[in-house]
Simulated assay, not measured.
Amino acid sequence: MKSAAILAFCLLLVGCAAPVKKDMSAFIAAAPRSVLVVPTINKSLDVDAPNYVLAALPVPVAEKGFYVFPVNTTKFVLEQEGYYEGERIHQEPTPVLAKLFGADAVLYVTINRWDAQFALLTTVVTVDFDYRMVAKDGTELWNEKKKLQYSPQNNNSGGSPMVALVSAVVSAAITRAAPNYMPLTKRANQEVFLLSPNAIPNGPYRKTAQ
């Protein structure tokens, strides 16, 4: 019994351990003012994922205080230069991409997972991203990873077990047929850019409370 209590206490300490603070000196030294968000690499099976993720990225970066080049304009200009696929764009030297727009830094995002999997009367929706920001001279300024999952909850806590079972099956089927990834995606971006202890430092246009 005593051993079990000690183990539980140790697990609690691990769960509450603060993340290791990353070195932000390169970011602070570069002091970027503008960020170019380029099309993503998509490792998921959803062909629409890159457009949704790309559309969600500018808001938290702008809220952090940086000028963000419009993503649709960026995509159009890159296509005119012959850059169509995320993989091809990510392979291009950062100074080349930054020079096209006069950007101080380039934000690269890789979609590792963007899927919904059925398991035991529920559907688990997962998003998993890698983020990387690189200065116009090619110096990596910051990187982060974020994985979030969501499973719809059955609200029939006071009803019969059969009704609860049917409700869970229907809810899972609906989520699997038409999963909504955007709330998770926006939450992942918010945590990475705004809430994390390792979020990027504030930009020059960061609005502060009066």
Rank of each mutant, 00 (worst) to 15 (best):
115 D>I: 13
89 I>R: 09
139 T>G: 04
95 P>Y: 04
92 E>W: 11
110 T>S: 10
158 G>L: 15
145 K>I: 13
85 E>P: 04
98 A>T: 07
60 P>T: 08
175 T>Q: 13
159 G>Y: 14
131 Y>N: 06
155 N>L: 15
125 V>I: 13
41 I>D: 07
107 L>Y: 04
75 K>L: 13
101 F>Q: 10
45 L>E: 12
81 E>F: 13
56 A>V: 00
130 D>K: 05
64 K>T: 14
57 L>I: 07
90 H>N: 04
175 T>V: 02
59 V>R: 11
78 L>Q: 04
122 T>K: 04
110 T>I: 11
133 M>C: 06
176 R>S: 14
176 R>V: 02
57 L>K: 03
62 A>K: 05
86 G>H: 01
130 D>N: 10
43 K>W: 01
178 A>W: 07
80 Q>L: 07
64 K>Y: 12
106 V>M: 00
111 I>R: 01
96 V>I: 12
173 A>R: 05
67 Y>C: 03
118 F>Q: 13
84 Y>I: 12
49 A>F: 02
134 V>L: 02
178 A>V: 04
99 K>E: 14
45 L>G: 13
118 F>C: 05
45 L>I: 08
46 D>A: 13
147 K>F: 02
57 L>S: 00
82 G>A: 06
123 T>N: 08
106 V>P: 01
111 I>Q: 00
104 D>E: 04
82 G>S: 09
103 A>R: 00
149 Q>D: 15
71 V>R: 03
142 W>I: 00
77 V>G: 07
75 K>N: 11
67 Y>G: 10
108 Y>A: 04
165 L>G: 11
93 P>H: 03
122 T>C: 03
72 N>A: 11
169 V>A: 05
67 Y>H: 15
95 P>Q: 05
118 F>Y: 10
68 V>C: 12
173 A>G: 06
110 T>A: 08
78 L>Y: 05
68 V>R: 07
76 F>T: 14
126 T>E: 08
106 V>C: 02
45 L>N: 15
88 R>E: 15
163 V>A: 15
102 G>Q: 09
50 P>W: 01
70 P>S: 08
61 V>Y: 06
128 D>C: 06
120 L>T: 11
81 E>L: 14
113 R>E: 15
109 V>N: 01
169 V>N: 04
87 E>Q: 08
62 A>S: 10
110 T>Q: 13
79 E>Y: 03
59 V>I: 06
100 L>T: 07
83 Y>H: 05
114 W>A: 00
73 T>A: 14
175 T>M: 14
55 A>G: 05
148 L>A: 00
146 K>V: 06
43 K>I: 04
173 A>T: 09
156 N>E: 14
65 G>P: 02
141 L>Y: 01
147 K>A: 09
88 R>I: 11
41 I>T: 06
146 K>N: 07
113 R>I: 03
64 K>R: 11
118 F>W: 14
133 M>F: 00
62 A>L: 05
164 A>N: 04
90 H>E: 12
136 K>S: 09
155 N>F: 08
